[in-house]
Simulated scan of single mutants.
Amino acid sequence: MADADAVRRQVNLTFALLGSDAPRSAEWIGANVDGYEGRSPDALHVVIKRDVDELRAMWVPIHFTDGQVRLNKEHYTLEPVELTEAEASVIGLAVDLAQGANLGALARSGWTKLAASGATRTFDGPPIAAVSNDITRLDPETLRRLLLGVRQRARLSFTYQRGPGAEAQRRTIDPWGIVPLNNRAYLVGWDVDRAAERVFRVSRIENVAKIAADDFHPPTGDLQEIVEKQLRGAVVDAQITVANGAGDELAARGTRDGNVIRLEGAERDWLVRTVASLAADVRAIEPADVRADVIALLKRAAGEEEA
C-alpha cells in the first residue's frame, strides 16, 4: 500500500493533469507539483514512473513516455449523472452512514454517483449515523434492498415488527424514500394491502424481497410531511406558566407573554415529555388532563430511578 507521501503526490499529479489540456514534462512536474520538488532529474523520473505505475494499477488512465506524463481524460471523467431529489436524498443517507462501521462500504459506494452529479443531500437535520442507533445497527443487506427498491421504484415485501412483543407482520409496499425524523429513520411508501400511505421504522424491517408489479403507486406528496403527519399523535392547546424565563423549547412552538407560554395544536406526547423535563421551572399547566399526564410521567420516571 502506498504511504501517505506517495498518495499525496499521486493525488496532486492527477489533479495537475486534469487541469491541463496537454501532457506535462517531468521537469514541469518537478517544479510545479507538490511532493516532487527538490529531486535530481534521474530521481525525479524514478518517482514519477513509480507513481504512474501505481495510479495505473488503480485504473487511472495515465501514461509516462519520453519524459512526458499525460492523462486520458476521456477515459477518466465520469459521465454526468442526473439525480432526482429522492435519489439525491438516498445517496445523502448512504454518505451519512459512512460513520457506521458495518455500513462503511455501502456508504462509500454512494460517493461515485454523488460526485458525478454534484447533488447534495436534502436532509435538514444532523447526519443520521451520528444520532440514530436505528441506522448504525441496521443490517447492510436490508438497507441495500430498501434503497434499491426506492431507486428502481420496485414493489417490496418485508417482515415488520411493530414493537416489542408484537407479532411480526408481512407487509407489501411501494417504497418512496427513507426519511429521518427525531433521530430515527423511516421508510415511507404506499401500503398495497391497506391502499394507503404508510410509514415504517427501518430498524424493525427484515427479510426484504422484491415483488413483480406493474402498478407502482407514485408518492402522494412531500415525503417529510407524510412521515410527520403519519407519526403525529393527538394534538392539544395548552398554557404553561414557568419561572425564570425557562421553556424556550415550548416558546419556539408557541407564543410567550412573560412567563406564560401558549401553544396551539401542539403534539400531546411531545408537550407532556417537554414539560416534564422542565418540571423544576414549571408553575402551572393547563388544561388539567395535560397536567395529570405530566405528573404521571414524572411518577413513572421516579419509580424507575428508585428501582
Results as ranks from 00 to 15, higher is better:
residue 286 E to V: 10
residue 307 A to D: 14
residue 147 L to H: 09
residue 52 V to I: 12
residue 259 N to W: 02
residue 173 I to G: 07
residue 40 S to P: 05
residue 151 R to E: 03
residue 187 L to G: 04
residue 238 A to C: 03
residue 98 A to P: 03
residue 241 T to W: 01
residue 85 E to C: 00
residue 34 D to W: 04
residue 247 G to I: 00
residue 101 A to E: 10
residue 175 P to W: 09
residue 201 R to V: 01
residue 263 L to R: 05
residue 139 D to F: 00
residue 54 E to D: 12
residue 163 G to L: 05
residue 271 L to N: 03
residue 72 N to F: 07
residue 264 E to T: 14
residue 20 S to L: 06
residue 181 L to K: 14
residue 155 R to Y: 06
residue 63 H to T: 09
residue 198 R to W: 09
residue 52 V to P: 03
residue 208 V to T: 06
residue 133 N to S: 08
residue 196 A to V: 07
residue 154 A to H: 10
residue 67 G to L: 09
residue 248 D to Q: 14
residue 220 T to V: 15
residue 72 N to C: 05
residue 292 A to L: 13
residue 167 E to A: 06
residue 65 T to F: 08
residue 55 L to R: 10
residue 299 K to R: 15
residue 182 N to V: 08
residue 260 V to S: 02
residue 140 P to Y: 02
residue 164 P to W: 04
residue 203 S to T: 00
residue 290 V to E: 08
residue 167 E to Y: 12
residue 42 D to N: 09
residue 279 A to G: 02
residue 301 A to V: 11
residue 18 L to S: 09
residue 257 D to K: 13
residue 241 T to G: 01
residue 144 R to L: 13
residue 299 K to E: 12
residue 125 G to K: 13
residue 9 R to Q: 10
residue 265 G to S: 08
residue 61 P to Y: 06
residue 109 S to G: 13
residue 66 D to V: 04
residue 139 D to V: 02
residue 126 P to V: 08
residue 186 Y to T: 07
residue 101 A to M: 12
residue 151 R to P: 00
residue 81 V to K: 14
residue 146 L to V: 09
residue 119 A to V: 08
residue 218 P to K: 01
residue 260 V to E: 10
residue 189 G to S: 09
residue 17 L to D: 02
residue 106 L to K: 13
residue 301 A to T: 12
residue 95 V to C: 06
residue 143 L to V: 02
residue 94 A to S: 10
residue 262 R to P: 01
residue 44 L to A: 07
residue 210 K to N: 03
residue 57 A to V: 04
residue 293 D to W: 12
residue 304 E to K: 02
residue 302 A to G: 06
residue 276 A to I: 06
residue 20 S to T: 14
residue 206 E to R: 15
residue 254 G to V: 10
residue 50 R to W: 05
residue 181 L to S: 10
residue 274 T to W: 07
residue 301 A to S: 14
residue 120 T to M: 11
residue 163 G to R: 15
residue 74 E to I: 00
residue 77 T to S: 08
residue 243 A to M: 07
residue 239 Q to E: 14
residue 23 P to C: 03
residue 267 E to R: 07
residue 174 D to P: 11
residue 31 A to R: 15
residue 193 D to L: 12
residue 227 V to K: 11
residue 267 E to H: 01
residue 268 R to I: 01
residue 269 D to W: 15
residue 51 D to A: 04
residue 76 Y to M: 10
residue 183 N to C: 10
residue 166 A to P: 00
residue 155 R to F: 02
residue 102 N to Y: 02
residue 171 R to I: 04
residue 85 E to V: 04
residue 237 D to N: 11
residue 270 W to R: 10
residue 38 G to I: 02
residue 150 V to M: 03
residue 150 V to G: 01
residue 10 Q to G: 11
residue 272 V to K: 05
residue 288 A to M: 07
residue 213 A to F: 07
residue 62 I to H: 01
residue 265 G to Y: 02
residue 223 L to F: 15
